[in-house]
Amino acid sequence: MDAVALYPDAEQVAVTWLRARLAERSEPYINGVTVGTKVAPKESPGKYVRIRRLGGVELHMVADSPRLQAQVWYSTGATTDEMNRQAIAQLVWALLRGIRGQDVTVPGWPRPVTCYRVATFAGPTPVPDPADVALTITQLTVEIGMRGRPA
């Protein structure tokens, strides 16, 4: 039988990384921004970054390469909302690229996840909010190489 690998939940790796890095920041527009994987149906979530896996491939026997999308909402009713949403999207993009070479500890995974490669597939782009096409969000897509473990 061929050797196989198990891979960590890539969404949780990215969420864990982003939550920790955003908590270190002092920019005022970051206050109150949360990061997760779910959005309530038919609701715009205010200040939120959603991470979701869109696909990706196994690179080789012990390396996964998940393609992750980050969607950014920022709605407070202020005239600076669009500028702040774009600033957060740029920051999220930079922080995700900064995961290269890092080990991320994810609850439930037996050892830190080594992230060794990042490729951008789509930089921050304004698009209609899936819950309300009259509103705008910003999204971006990256692929992150992650080390697995033996099954």
Results as ranks from 00 to 15, higher is better:
residue 69 Q to W: 01
residue 39 V to R: 03
residue 136 T to V: 13
residue 64 D to G: 15
residue 1 M to S: 13
residue 28 P to D: 00
residue 50 R to S: 08
residue 145 G to K: 06
residue 50 R to D: 01
residue 137 I to W: 01
residue 122 A to N: 01
residue 24 E to D: 15
residue 98 G to V: 08
residue 67 R to T: 02
residue 3 A to G: 04
residue 136 T to H: 00
residue 101 G to V: 07
residue 138 T to Y: 01
residue 98 G to K: 11
residue 3 A to L: 09
residue 126 P to Y: 03
residue 70 A to N: 03
residue 71 Q to L: 08
residue 61 M to C: 12
residue 126 P to V: 12
residue 33 V to N: 01
residue 143 E to W: 11
residue 29 Y to T: 11
residue 117 R to H: 00
residue 124 P to M: 03
residue 19 R to E: 09
residue 91 L to H: 08
residue 92 V to A: 13
residue 35 V to S: 09
residue 44 S to E: 07
residue 110 P to R: 01
residue 15 V to R: 03
residue 116 Y to N: 10
residue 83 M to F: 11
residue 85 R to H: 13
residue 63 A to E: 15
residue 3 A to C: 13
residue 130 P to N: 02
residue 124 P to W: 04
residue 133 V to C: 14
residue 48 Y to D: 09
residue 104 V to D: 00
residue 77 G to F: 13
residue 80 T to P: 15
residue 3 A to S: 14
residue 29 Y to W: 08
residue 7 Y to W: 06
residue 74 Y to H: 07
residue 107 P to M: 02
residue 107 P to S: 06
residue 117 R to Q: 01
residue 140 L to G: 07
residue 128 P to L: 15
residue 8 P to S: 09
residue 138 T to P: 05
residue 29 Y to V: 12
residue 45 P to K: 02
residue 150 P to A: 11
residue 140 L to F: 06
residue 60 H to L: 13
residue 51 I to E: 00
residue 122 A to Y: 07
residue 106 V to D: 00
residue 30 I to S: 02
residue 116 Y to K: 14
residue 15 V to M: 03
residue 115 C to Q: 05
residue 110 P to N: 12
residue 94 A to I: 06
residue 148 G to K: 03
residue 86 Q to I: 05
residue 132 D to G: 12
residue 109 W to Q: 04
residue 33 V to E: 01
residue 69 Q to E: 01
residue 3 A to I: 11
residue 65 S to G: 13
residue 81 D to H: 07
residue 107 P to Y: 00
residue 30 I to Q: 02
residue 106 V to A: 00
residue 139 Q to D: 12
residue 143 E to G: 00
residue 67 R to K: 02
residue 115 C to T: 15
residue 97 R to W: 13
residue 127 V to E: 07
residue 109 W to F: 02
residue 145 G to H: 03
residue 147 R to V: 15
residue 70 A to S: 13
residue 129 D to M: 05
residue 29 Y to C: 09
residue 65 S to P: 02
residue 57 V to T: 12
residue 33 V to H: 10
residue 84 N to S: 14
residue 30 I to K: 10
residue 126 P to S: 06
residue 79 T to W: 03
residue 114 T to G: 14
residue 71 Q to G: 06
residue 66 P to S: 06
residue 119 A to V: 04
